[in-house]
Design a protein around this nucleic acid. Structure first.
Lengths: 362, 362
DNA sequence: TCCTAATATTAAAACGTTTTAAAAACAATA
DNA sequence: TATTGTTTTTAAAACGTTTTAATATTAGGA
């Protein structure tokens, strides 16, 4: 590989001059500059970032630790990160913790238990060692699930930004989408369609997204003076079967809801499957609203109205924030929430004007 | 950050000794080794990979150029790559070409046109520069669509492995899943269920996956002496609407098929939507088979029988191959095909024993 | 005790840069 | 032509490692 020495020899100048031409424009005579540039082109010289970074004692690289790079949101977040890094001429080094693997192979494992599971800890420390030895300028930690990951990383002496997860430590930088807001815009959509009996199929209620999405739900009900009916709220896990069973249960109610807000698309799939089996027409007889906007939710039967997560935005904001910290700033805002967007498709619509269950009473 | 000098001073030895202890085990007296190791632990010394790699004149890093890191398969492929790299103590540097962006913003753009689109070329050369300046030992190119990408990279002087794409150059290393085989196992499944009238909803026929999946289809028909009926084959693009329309068209046939093999899950979604609208019961009246196994195909209505791509396997094999080449080997096999696996769910089943359309004729 | 052979340690060079301080070249003025 | 001031160029040191060749230490045998 051509070095700066080759270029200098070829151009008949010293290596210092070559470096000057390349890095401190305007400090070299026009004629010299031309000579050097010609040599660079001629010899196809590409500066050695290793040497450069060693000299500078900081590498123009940031690290990503992804709890699971194959999770549905990871690619989009990384996309956002890499876009920012490219414009700032930073490289990206990726470490993958393969957390989902532990989730699947350890019966009874929950996201919350992960940090105390030894093989996972080992994966974390391997990743850290790799990134520290590469002398990355900072790192972005991408969670697998929006939960508390306090203490998952020791003090590394380099800036860290967490995303798609939270930490209790108020001095940590954290970038996330706004669950509560997402929940609200979903409810606003349903309410604006005229629904008043809106049920909620909830995922794990004792979780951050569960809690916040619930908050958005109840707040919206209150804001619009709608009845908060506990029988309309069914909590459980995030799985398809829960969505299915809960929908069945809601349909069996003496006064079934006209709309169901599901805390995730997968729950919504379950709900739609149940409704389908019952022969309920969507959205005429029942509106179903999801949350997450998975890749194929647009193709569901029917296409699912849902809330889209600003994933690339998380990546972009995290990277902007990190580079900002690396460059010496200490931004005030340490917990940043990015709004979601409502995606209206055909699983929601206006309720039939007179709800069938009480039509005889009017 | 602690350097080898700090460790040497702390342990009261020379830096050469520290290096020996760390890198050439067994060449140092037991007592010295203990002293040095203690110092390393005490001072929390993490060797500077920058300096190490500079000295060695090759970095223990491989590059990934992903045409689109947010595409559905990228995460899984990268997962496979990173797993291998981790075990070999290699780091991974990621560059993202954001090809999908160009696809979406340039009307009429096709995958095949990408390489000649200037902004895309610029993205490629930026990525190359970044990786070459990092002195990566080799790189893996992850396509966005299994197509010919010949000439997309100039000669870089480092090993390259292509995956999720092809090249015409027989000296290139290429790792892909086996479309033809995937198509065959799908057909075997349908045939083994007793189907004899199997239609094909094809994506772009003038594409590598289109061509190969078609091959698997026709070969399976021939192998089992089943009639090859051109009216059962409908070609088009990869979009949902094509799946929908084609299914309608097939159902309108005087003798409709009992099973439809769709070249992609999205096409299958379209087909299932059409069947649903027609009130066709799945799989009793019609079996529908997909290809790709998208994340949520398991939750479709009904859960979709499909072909799963060995994505992590592509990554793993590519990385194994690349590291092998980097270490000096020149493996014989330059085009590697990895088999797919059949995922049986509920969108397929045995045909009704007497096909309704000809039941009166028996 | 001394010599030899084996073992253990280290000084110094090298990897490819950037940067500092000094030297060289040039231009302008007296 | 000197002198001064300005612009341009460069020698050399430094970044943190590994490695080579040389040196120091130790052990064993006479």
């Amino acid at each position: 590989m051509t070095t700066i020495h080759d270029v200098a020899a070829y151009a008949g100048v010293s290596i210092a001059t070559v470096s000057n031409v390349l890095n401190r424009k305007g400090n070299t005579a026009e004629k010299t500059t031309a000579k050097v540039l010609a040599a660079v082109r001629e010899l196809n010289y590409i500066p050695n970032a290793l040497a450069k970074d060693l000299k500078a004692n900081r590498s123009r690289t940031i690290g990503i630790i992804a709890e699971d790079v194959s999770a549905f949101m990871s690619g989009n977040i990384i996309d956002g990160i890499s876009a920012v890094c490219e414009t700032h001429d930073y490289a990206v080094t990726l470490c993958n913790l393969r957390a989902e693997h532990y989730m699947n192979t350890q019966p009874g494992m929950t996201y919350e238990m992960l940090p105390s599971y030894l093989p996972f800890q080992k994966a974390v420390s391997t990743a850290i060692d790799s990134l520290l030895s590469a002398r990355v300028g900072g790192l972005i930690y991408i969670g697998l699930y929006p939960r508390d990951v306090s203490g998952i990383l020791p003090d590394l002496g380099i800036p860290v930004v967490y995303t798609y997860c939270f930490t209790q430590n108020s001095s940590d930088y954290c970038v996330n989408y706004d669950d509560c807001h997402g929940s609200s815009i979903a409810m606003e959509h349903l309410i604006s369609l005229g629904h008043t009996r809106i049920a909620l199929i909830s995922g794990v209620i004792n979780s951050i997204p569960g809690h916040k999405r619930m908050k958005g739900y109840t707040e919206s009900l209150m804001k619009h003076n709608l009845l908060f009916d506990p029988t309309y709220i069914i909590t459980g896990d995030w799985g398809f079967p829960h969505g299915y069973r809960s929908c069945m249960q809601l349909l069996d109610l003496p006064e079934p809801p006209t709309a169901i807000f599901c805390m995730s698309d997968v729950l919504a799939f379950g709900a739609l499957t149940a409704a389908h089996e019952r022969g309920i027409r969507i959205p005429e007889q029942l509106s179903v609203h999801g949350f997450d906007d998975l890749l194929t939710s647009q193709f569901y039967l029917p296409p699912l109205t849902t809330v889209s997560l600003p994933l690339a935005g998380l990546g972009k904001t995290s990277a902007d924030l990190l580079l900002c910290i690396i460059s010496g700033d200490t931004p005030e805002a340490r917990g940043i929430l990015i709004p979601c967007t409502e995606i209206v498709r055909s699983s929601t619509g206006a309720p039939v004007s007179v709800p069938p269950a009480i039509s005889g009473n009017t």
